[in-house]
Amino acid sequence: MRLAPDARTFGPPVIKVEGLVTRVGGRILHDGLDLELRRGEVVGVVGGSGTGKSVLLRTIIGLNRHVGGRIEVLGQDVGKLGDRALRKLQTRWGVLFQDGALFSAQTVAQNIQVPMREHTDLTPRLMDELAAVKLGMAGLPPDAATKFPSELSGGMRKRAGLARALSLDPEILFLDEPTAGLDPISAAQFDMLVRDLQKSLNLTVFMVTHDIDTLRATTDRIAVLIDKKIRIGTFDTLVHDPHPWIQQYFSGVRGRAALAAS
């Protein structure tokens, strides 16, 4: 059973976005956006298509440039970091892309070991053991290790992607639509997995999702991207937000089902 959101205590802020302005193809997507994630918190980002949910995620991890504002991750300004410092920071977060983004020429085990080989001096033997540990944590069977990404189902690819994202024991986990394309059973299992891992590794999780069940099951707070800014709150407070989009989002059939289920 999850604790009520206000009963949980969170650590210091790990992601701090202030007055963010981003522009993609000449169109301003975010204008003066503020967001703060505290350690150990799971925040889900929702919003209509084209409101820049994925762009926000990509901007925070430094894949897109922002034109204004400040992004601070683990106390460092992402926009001002040099190459080396950014690479060091990158080892402290893990990213799961939408379809896993596994390297297709490598087996799952090799995929998991890519960051270890690049950033640590572990012995091959320990790396092989640790890769098996990550596989187990991501809920994959041991024989998945020697398979290539093309031989896996969509759900397994996501788990393998998650195992790779966890490879260096990151402090922050970014998930881009983790349950998109999964059947409801796999999606629910994935939600559980994320929640369990978050608890045991005390991860801070930033996830972009459309899935209202995922929001209900995993997040502590929900950030809604509206009018180029963010409205953040818990599931229960947002349900009562008067904004028409939020009302429509939570009062849709699927939203009601999720509410009833809780």
Binding site: V133, G136, A145
Partner: peptide, 19 residues
């Protein structure tokens, strides 16, 4: 404790093998 429990329960696979 949660981490140790997770590893104890979920991670029983042998070290990964490479082709």
């Amino acid at each position: 404790k949660p981490l140790i429990t997770t590893i104890d329960q979920d991670c029983h696979g042998p070290p990964v093998a490479h082709p």
